[in-house]
Design a protein around this nucleic acid. Structure first.
Length: 761
DNA sequence: GCACAGTCCCGTCTG
DNA sequence: GGGACTGTGC
């Protein structure tokens, strides 16, 4: 351990060794923050603090897992065994499991994800017969979520003049009723949404001082990572826990606060000293990651923000290269430029593909890069987009698990009552829901005793419902004796999910089978084999893609949003799409706070780079189905030009960037004709990319003829229907149709404009 | 009840 | 461009 302390610089060491009171560790980008946290915990353990007295809250489950492993290596797995370490959500879900009855739940409560929440909101809006063009489910859910993050209950909401006024102004006076009903329904379902995990923990501690005291006693030392991204509910729960002893250490970087849209409040870190005046502040300012040029460029950028804790991040690494700035005529050309540069760097510096990352503001931007990379046979991998756990087949299985664990779960019920199809449609479902509301019981109760509740269905339907009930009931019986893994596989088999999936031999179906397999198998490998279904489900409900990645494997380039890149580092970073209304986003630019957050986001992006960083923008971009002209991002002006390198032949363009006039002044020929054509032909090769998250880039995908050129006799491979022979083609250019006889999917008519297939001979 | 075609609307980030 | 929803024909 002494040796380990020697591995730290002075500031790091001081931060590690101070544990007598509150402390704030301001950790600049690349300053060894994780190392400090890890050593601090190891140090505490080494000083004889029992592991169960330490609570450490991290941003992702993965971060917790890695840190725990590392600590185990330092002090021995035994000493680290009972550390409480995880995300806010997972730690408090665990506490609520134990204390559920004090807040009116039972311990088998289930956790709904964001899309379930949205569905429930949508259902309620329908039931209230409100116009969903005014009451947009996503927006209403957002309002509810923000309220919960601010610890505003439905009652408080209804009494809050500002909120009510705001709703009146936006012509949505019923939001408060929706919120009330939404919470009632959750409660009746014995279910919580993500925000509830924090809300109810706060309520638990507020209303049960004895419980609070117990946890205060248990958690003698509290550490919070990424404190700049905590919201009010998280802040308050920490404050309550730390009130007894003030031994709370928060770590973060205000310059990297990028989650205000989900309620994160940068004031938590900015005002920590006001809450704990006796707090010691440690600043980690030496950046070990990046070259001086990169650090300096990032510093000059972030200086433009008003709200921040002043600090001087510096690097003693090489001076390094300036940041490249490149403009492209179109998003398409941007893709080509980036792909070429990647090949150049890889060749000249013998970099491996895994040393590269392309960072963008929105997931939609990944598409163009997929195409340009595939054309050059550059292997890549995309993070984000549709999460593994959001896939239909996975959500279906999870819904079964939820029903078995907690049959009151309304959203799970609705999801699987007719999956796999068993002839129970919307009419029957609405009868069940109506009857349930009438008697104020769960849907499950209704189908368990349809006669008691006078459920009005015909004999055939009644039989189908009874069949469904039997299946679920038989799983419930096995719940106490079977491990999650065994139960899961019998659920997948006996519910008919397996039959349904394995009948489908289309590429899509195959990918579904793989996902199901992966879901069951990898959970088995990673988890405790004897874990029960309740714990398994609780864990799985709080996982994200970030937690399950197996990135280390391959020789591949990475693409992700800037948000997703937080905490990572790469030798070579490409930040693309630096245009007004994209980065900064159109939605953020009207408010100072929004704009400052976008700037911090850009700061996060630049500081991912160790050696090389390229910034690109396009003058025209295909967005929302049409081509738009764009102006370069105002953020170019924020970086001191002495750290920028403006590529050959582009000096005028960059002059214009600096005055932010490029697109207005330049009379440019539309580039999009070519773009659209290219996009159309490469769409064909996209057919292979059914599942792009783990998709392997296809070798030699180019060279496919356009789909429009298909003729009778061609063999084709369709994204959904698989292999088939073209029988005939008819219709004029715009409405060309092909009749295709598929090996496994019968004969289909395809409208060539839309059809996704590839000609294979 | 289901599959398919057509229409509308949207568009950031996420535990 | 595409997901969510609606309408239509079996």
């Amino acid at each position: 351990m002494d040796n380990l302390l020697n591995n730290l610089n002075n500031q790091q060491r001081e931060a590690v060794m101070y544990n007598d009171g509150p402390s704030l560790i301001i950790a600049g980008a690349g300053s060894g923050k994780t190392r400090v946290l890890t050593y601090k915990i190891a140090y505490l353990l080494q000083q004889g603090v029992p592991s169960y007295h330490i609570l450490a809250l991290t941003f992702t489950n993965k971060a917790a897992k890695e840190m725990k492993e590392r600590i185990g290596q330092i002090v021995g797995a035994r000493a680290a065994r009972y550390l409480w370490m995880g995300t806010f959500h997972s730690v408090f879900a665990r506490i609520l499991r134990v204390e559920s009855e004090k807040i009116g739940y039972t311990s088998n409560y289930t956790i709904m994800d964001a899309s379930d929440s949205k569905n429930l909101v949508k259902t309620i809006i329908k039931e209230f017969q409100l116009d969903d063009k005014i009451y947009k489910p996503g927006q209403v859910q957002g309002i509810i979520s923000s309220a919960k993050n601010a610890l505003i209950s439905p009652q408080m909401y209804a009494q809050n003049k500002d909120l009510i006024e705001h709703d009146m102004r936006s012509k949505r006076p019923m939001v408060k009723e929706i919120y009330t009903q939404y919470n009632n329904r959750l409660h009746a379902s014995n279910a919580m949404d993500f925000d509830d995990l924090l809300f109810h923990t706060n309520r638990l501690f507020r209303d049960h001082p004895d419980v609070l005291a117990e946890y205060q006693k248990r958690f003698q030392f509290i550490l919070v990572d990424e404190y700049q991204d905590t919201n009010f509910a998280q802040y308050l729960v920490i404050k309550q826990l730390a009130d007894a002893h003030h031994r709370v250490c928060v770590v973060g970087d205000d310059a990297q606060s990028i989650y205000s849209f989900r309620g994160a409040n940068i004031d938590n870190i900015l005002k920590f000293k006001e809450i704990y005046p006796e707090a010691k502040v440690f600043k980690l300012e030496q950046n070990y990651r990046s070259t001086q040029n990169i650090v300096n460029a990032a510093n000059s950028l972030i200086k433009q923000n008003r709200e921040q804790i002043r600090k001087t991040v510096f690097s003693e690494n090489n001076e390094g290269e300036k940041l490249d700035v490149v403009s492209a005529y179109s998003d398409f050309e941007e893709g080509v430029i980036v792909a070429n540069k990647i090949l150049d760097i890889r060749r000249d510096r013998k970099s491996s593909y895994s040393d590269f990352v392309i960072l963008y503001r929105t997931n939609a931007q990944s598409r163009v890069f997929e195409e340009s990379l595939r054309k050059k046979n550059i292997p890549y991998r995309i993070y984000g987009g549709l999460s593994f756990y959001q896939r239909k087949e996975i959500k279906d299985v999870i819904a079964y698990f939820r029903m078995v664990v907690n049959p009151s779960d309304e959203e799970a019920f609705k999801r699987i009552i007719n999956f796999p199809a068993r002839g129970i449609g919307a009419t029957t479902l609405s009868k069940i829901i109506g009857t349930a509301k009438l008697h104020n019981v769960s849907l499950w109760k209704i189908i368990s005793n349809p006669l008691d509740y006078n459920l009005d269905v015909n004999a055939g339907t009644a039989k189908k419902l009874a069949g469904f009930k039997e299946i679920i009931a038989s799983f419930i019986e096995e719940l106490p004796t079977q491990s999650a893994y065994d139960l899961a596989s019998s659920i997948v088999k006996q519910s008919g999910i397996a039959r349904d999936a394995y009948q489908d031999m289309t590429p899509e179906g195959m990918s579904r089978q793989e996902n199901l397999h992966e879901f069951c198998e990898t959970r088995k490998e990673e988890g405790n084999e004897n874990i029960g279904l309740i714990d398994f489900l609780s864990e799985v409900s709080l996982l994200t893609d970030q937690d399950t990645d197996k990135s280390a494997d391959a020789e591949r380039l990475t693409m992700m949003t800037v948000h997703a890149s937080k905490g990572l580092e790469f030798k070579n970073v490409f930040i693309v799409g630096l245009e007004e209304d994209l980065f900064p986003s159109a939605m953020a630019k009207n408010e100072m706070r929004g704009l400052e957050e976008e700037r911090r986001l850009f700061y996060v992006a630049i500081t991912r780079a160790k050696e090389f960083c390229m910034l690109t923008y396009a003058k025209s971009r295909f967005r929302n189905g049409q081509v738009n002209m764009c102006n370069p991002s105002r953020f170019f002006k924020d970086i001191d030009t002495k750290y920028l390198n403006v590529g050959g032949g582009l000096s005028t363009a960059v002059n214009n960037i600096m005055t932010n006039k490029a697109a207005e002044t330049e009379k440019q020929r539309p580039y999009y004709e070519r773009t659209v054509q290219e996009a159309r032909s490469s769409q064909v090769s996209n057919a292979n990319m059914v599942n792009s998250r783990f998709a392997k880039p296809k070798v030699g995908a180019a060279g496919v003829q356009g789909a429009m050129g298909v003729e009778a006799g061609n063999r084709i491979k369709h994204e959904r229907f698989g292999i088939g022979i073209v029988v005939s083609v008819e219709g004029d250019l715009n409405n060309r149709k092909a009749t295709v006889s598929f090996e496994n999917a019968g004969t289909k008519q395809l409208l060539l404009k839309f059809a996704r297939f590839e000609i294979i001979n």
